[in-house]
Design a protein around this nucleic acid. Structure first.
Lengths: 167, 167
DNA sequence: TTCCCTGCAAAAGTTTTGCACTACT
DNA sequence: AGTAGTGCAAAACTTTTGCAGGGAA
């Protein structure tokens, strides 16, 4: 394959996170969006949003609940879910369903990327490939559809797991 | 974009289904797989497998349950799920999680394809694009991973819904 | 005859909702 | 003060499991 190397691979969180708004900017946007909708800023919403931002990528509601609980043992699951829903509506967070029972959430507002999921160790590697992006737009056009979002998920064995004992 | 048109779009079930094994071949394979594992063929398994094959594409457990109930009002959900699990193990069925709460299942053994999902009317359009396939392999190589499966899902408005009232 | 399979009901896991109380604005 | 938000518990929804009885090999 004589294609020039276009894919950017984000194996280390620091790489993937570059270009992402700072925690302050992000929370500020959240507050602005709340105000715009006539909704209130509360201590819980801030705690949850901050914990979410701090924890990093591909967080489940359960993990977020655990984290927030440490700072404030009184929060309930309901508030976690309600706040995540709110963050989605404000387009600060996107919800993803990898092949599991539960949803995972990630911070929006950084560069678009897709995911590789290791089927053995569960590691998630992000990558970005402009050709795939272009191709998807072209396909939508052929279908006659407009595209609002898309996802590419690759499943397999990561480098480390390939080198492992079996296979 | 001066790319030549490579995408095959399957908008009509008949197109997507071409090349798929017949119901008889498919059930036969199921029986063979069961025997190989020392498991039994039963009336319920056949009913479920047949209903599944007959119903076509992207079926949920609930829909399948409803269909099978009509022929045999005694079947329970448990048997539906157990049989779907079995069909997956026999690689006759694959499970998919689109962005919904429930899983959907589709017949394997036909050509690989990806999905466009209309966010308004729920219509699912299948397509096949060799470039995307190649690109995904190339990306996996760059990541250093081996690929066992992958999915591309495009979300947006289909041709009909775009033409609709708002937007 | 021996297990495997089935149906039922209960359980488990995730997410949502009703309600009384609390607390932003 | 008024309205939206919170916590709790219960409900809803999807999927899994335990168990006693039934059926394929």
């Amino acid at each position: 394959m004589n294609r020039r190397r276009e894919t950017l691979v984000f194996e280390h969180p620091a790489q993937a996170l570059s270009g992402r708004p700072t925690a302050e900017e992000w929370i500020e946007t959240f507050h602005a969006q709340l105000k715009e909708r006539g909704l209130k800023s509360t201590a819980q919403r801030d705690e949850i949003a901050q914990a979410f931002y701090r924890m990093g990528r591909h967080i489940s509601a359960e993990e977020l609940y655990g984290e927030v609980k440490q700072a404030n043992p009184h929060v309930g699951y309901a508030t976690i879910y309600r706040t995540l829903k709110l963050l989605k509506e404000c387009e600060l967070v996107s919800e993803r369903h990898f092949d599991e029972g539960q949803a995972r959430y990630e911070v929006l507002g950084e560069r678009h990327h897709d995911h590789f999921i290791c089927e053995r160790c569960g590691r998630i590697i992000e990558f970005e490939n402009p050709q795939i992006e272009r191709l998807q737009q072209a396909i939508a056009q052929e279908i006659g559809a407009s595209l609002t979002r898309h996802k590419v998920e690759l499943y397999g064995l990561c480098r480390d797991c390939r080198g492992g004992v079996n296979k």
